[in-house]
């Protein structure tokens, strides 16, 4: 599955992000005007179909902002998001709708990422409804299928999100993302906050799903060690900018930037042997 740099006639990448920038205006008060926070500046990278790009960086460096711009929850101020030859950054909310199924997101805190007043089935079916896909029966079938893929028993479809445990909830958000058969999954720290054994289970599940459907991942984490196991390539961000990008083995073995080294040190493990794991 590793991309072969030397392969002839490389197809265009699935996603190409160019010079992405986003500035937030912090909410001010009546007396104080809002402060400007440049969360992301000049970020560029690309992701090949079916591959995994790991995006690392310490907390507050702008990873989630990048994710939300790609998922188009946020509209970037500058830059392009080229997907299948279309610049998503320039499209309006309405124009984006046909592209939504192809790019889906999974969030860090699954509990808050789902409507508390919906049942599991409603949560998974809602994207289908919005896209106007299928009859009620067909949708029910796809919901069941998605739950199965995410490793959830179909009988639980009537339960509310809150009746699930942490790991199960993350499976539920995964099912919601998978039901539209996306080409790219943006995973924003999907394993953070889970206990060790659950993390392993979910990580294995993600690998299995990717293997089965050939979905590309943008996998965001502050844990370089984890990315070392999961990603084909790794990009490292610091203070809104991309500071280093390269194949996993190279980043893990020969980190160039201080930020990368810091992250590696913080993940508390020895450098993984080059090319290990994947």
């Amino acid at each position: 599955m590793n991309s072969q740099p030397s392969a002839p006639a490389t197809p265009p990448p699935l996603l190409r992000v160019q010079e992405l920038a986003k500035t937030y205006i912090r909410r001010g008060s009546f007396t104080q005007p809002g402060a400007r926070v440049q969360a992301v500046k000049g970020v560029s990278f690309s992701i090949e179909a079916g591959s995994t790009l790991g995006l690392a960086g310490s907390s507050g460096c702008g990873k989630s902002t990048v994710a939300r711009c790609i998922g188009r929850i946020e509209r970037p101020d500058e830059g392009k998001i080229l997907f299948d030859g279309h610049n998503l950054a320039a499209l309006s909310f309405r124009e984006l709708r046909p592209f939504r199924p192809a790019i889906q997101m999974v969030f860090q805190d699954a509990a808050t990422a789902m409507n508390p007043s919906f049942s599991a089935a409603d949560i998974i079916a809602e994207p289908l409804l919005i896209q106007g896909i299928g009859t009620a029966e067909e949708r029910a079938g796809r919901v069941r299928q998605a739950m199965q893929e995410a490793g959830l028993p179909a009988e639980w479809s009537g339960r509310a999100a809150h009746d699930f445990s942490g790991g199960q909830r993350q499976r539920l958000t995964l099912a919601r993302a998978l039901v539209l058969k996306p080409k790219l999954l943006v995973l924003d720290e999907p394993l953070t906050g889970l206990d060790v054994s659950t993390r392993a289970q979910i990580a294995n599940l993600l690998l299995a799903v990717q293997a089965a459907h050939g979905i590309a991942y943008l996998f965001i984490s502050h844990d370089l060690f984890l990315l070392g196991h999961l990603a084909d390539r790794i990009a490292v961000m610091s203070e809104g900018q991309l500071v280093e990008e390269g194949p996993t083995s190279q980043i893990m073995a020969r980190p160039q930037h201080a930020e990368t080294r810091k992250l590696l040190a913080a993940s508390g493990r020895q450098l993984a042997p080059a090319g290990a794991g994947r």
Partner: peptide, 28 residues
Amino acid sequence: HAPFVEAARGCGIGGARLLFRHVLPAAA
């Protein structure tokens, strides 16, 4: 401002449907 609303937006849910089907019941 809750994350699930952003998630819904990410699924392409917006406008009145977002407000009345997703937000309102949760704010009820």
